[in-house]
């Protein structure tokens, strides 16, 4: 999923060699982060919601709504948290 929509264009993502975009924050160490987008408590639900439709959750963010459904967003959130723990 991360490969299909290419989250890597903006973010450094653990386990993804390329691209290592630097527009958005690095997502390495997502399990350690206190807040999602510096605003919400870092829970898988919040993270998934933000991934799916960031502007709706935090108006004004650069991050666009992604063309994925809820389940896929949860998978991505889970991947980020799991990979960071390694």
């Amino acid at each position: 999923m991360i490969e299909r929509v290419q989250c890597g264009s903006c973010h450094v993502i653990p386990g993804v060699d390329w691209p290592k975009g630097r527009l958005g924050p690095s997502l390495d160490g997502m399990d350690q982060q206190g807040l999602v987008a510096g605003t919400f408590p870092n829970t898988p639900q919040n993270l998934a919601a933000f991934i799916r439709n960031a502007p709706a959750v935090k108006p004004g963010t650069v991050m666009p709504a992604m063309p994925i459904d809820d389940r896929e967003a949860r998978d991505v959130a889970q991947y980020l948290i799991e990979e960071s723990k390694r």
Binding site: K20, L23, G24, M66
Partner: peptide
């Protein structure tokens, strides 16, 4: 090299040097 969606477009415009 990249699929064309809003996310990749944003990333490309904002920081294409890290991608290519």
């Amino acid at each position: 090299i990249l699929p064309n969606n809003r996310g990749t477009m944003t990333g490309w415009v904002g920081h294409s040097q890290s991608i290519k």
